[in-house]
Amino acid sequence: MTINKEAVKKISKLSRIASNDEFETSMIKDLNTILKFVDQLNEVDTKDIEPLSSVVEQKLFQREDVVKKMNEKEEILKNSPNKNENYFVVPKVIE
């Protein structure tokens, strides 16, 4: 499978990364190189092989339904590049 300009545009949109000609050109080259490299996997017969998403073999720990000390609103908002007294502030969504 190869990636063309349109595909790169679509992926950058999905990834929320602003794209321009220069970016697209370099991405087409790099992504195709990487895809060609990973295409080696097609040599492997994986019929009936259970996919592995975690190597951990234990039961999922479940915590009790207890409210722990709340963080201060200030601590949560402190690092935001744009905030007011109570909220994170973001540019409006244009529909």
């Binding site: 990364i17 970016f23 690092n79 973001v90 540019p91 244009i94």
Partner: peptide, 19 residues
């Protein structure tokens, strides 16, 4: 948190910030 680039709306802000 962290860096934010300006954008005329939310999506543009995301895209510029991440680019």
């Amino acid at each position: 948190y962290g860096f934010r680039a300006p954008g005329k709306d939310l999506i543009e802000m995301y895209e510029n910030t991440r680019a």
